[in-house]
Design a protein around this nucleic acid. Structure first.
Lengths: 214, 214
DNA sequence: TATCGTCGAATTGTGGAACAATCTACCAGC
DNA sequence: GCTGGTAGATTGTTCCACAATTCGACGATA
């Protein structure tokens, strides 16, 4: 529910309400929320329960800053070790084979799989764990903002260009391209956020449900 | 208890035992462990409860790899923004003022404070959160391994050398020095681990309590 | 009318008991 | 010695209870 956009950003998750709705005990619900809090998807304030995280443009910048740090370290490790990345190449292939009319979701999935493959290629358990957390937040962003996506072929091309310097072992170029790519993504998301805020401007203090901006 | 070395690495934390000992309910203990699991200090296997993490030399390398990624990104951000780091300088000063006979703990604290100050200086909430997690693991390492530490004046000197390129805005030199420093720390810890394992070799499969190696 | 304080309801945080599912250790039998 | 089963321990979850805190409505006062 948190990640599929069916909850409004900032929504308060009352324990009795949600434990009843999900058919689980209140304790169990609390345990579940605790895990999500650890992943940064929910926030808890003492005696005031948990809320779905609200992401402003600073948060987006921040998420992608950490994402950049992690991915670039992964890139460094992959190049140093000369690791092959079949999963990443597979993801590019998949993007390339998607029809222009492909669903938003399938493009996002392939995109995510590509970046995930690079992290996994680095072979660092903790890098991967930290990336789990940012990836969750990115998914939350995506679910809430539904940013613009280029055509699959375009996305495929960009990602192939990311992979190129990795295969050649050119760290400097790889770093440059990844930073550019991630900066672009940040821009896309902040733009989407700005657009959403403008739509919501007519209802000050009110946050539109997903359906209103999709 | 997890961080002060009073628990053996790999120790299983039985719910009834510890909730009784701590005078809290089993539910409350479970909630507490869930938080520590999120920080990577405890591990949970389904139906087998939680254990204190056991860190082998691969884990140490891995922890410091992530640490390096985070600190270097922080360094980058600090240099880009030209941020002043009074807390870091204060930590160096503190190290410098410590007597040669200073307690192990006080050196560790000042060392930690120095690196923390750089992370905080970057002004990224999520970088700081990710660093919290590795810092906890580092503390766990330290508590379990008690690695060798140089004299405070020596430690102060090394850290002043880290700060230097930050003030001058020399990213390349900063990166080089930080990597060298962190690689050295990794080596220290893996050496300490190896030494501990050799001591424990007489008791195969057995892990010595802290007191036996301190 | 607007602001403030008070009180009651709702909600969270924690405790306690219970029970099914699972794991562990021990024991008997082959 | 290995296998299978059985009993006890442990975890995961549920239900109920209650103190502490917060939220919200109401009414008093300026």
């Amino acid at each position: 529910m948190v990640l599929d956009g069916s909850l409004e950003p900032g929504a308060r998750l009352r324990e009795t309400e949600y434990s009843n709705r999900l058919g689980i005990a209140r304790h169990t619900f609390r345990a579940a929320t605790q895990i999500l809090i650890g992943e940064g998807l929910l926030r808890r304030s003492p005696n005031r329960g948990v809320q779905l995280a609200v992401l402003d443009s600073d948060d987006i910048t921040d998420i992608f800053r950490l994402r950049a740090a992690l991915e670039l370290e992964a890139v460094r490790l992959v190049i140093e070790a000369g690791t092959e990345l079949p999963d990443a190449e597979h993801a590019v292939e998949q993007l390339n084979n998607l029809p222009e009319s492909a669903s938003w979701r399938s493009v996002v999935d392939a995109d995510m799989a590509f970046h995930r493959a690079i992290i996994d290629g680095a072979g660092s358990e903790r890098l991967a764990r930290a990336y789990d957390s940012v990836q969750s937040e990115i998914l939350l962003c995506m679910a809430q903002l539904r940013p613009h996506y280029d055509k699959p072929s375009q996305v495929a091309r960009v990602h192939r260009e990311l992979l190129e310097p990795l295969a050649k072992g050119d760290l400097e170029l790889a770093e440059k391209r990844f930073r550019a790519h991630l900066d672009k993504a940040t821009e896309n998301l902040t733009d989407a956020l700005k657009a959403q805020e403008e739509v919501a401007a007519g209802h000050p203090g009110d946050i539109l449900p997903q359906s209103a901006v999709a």
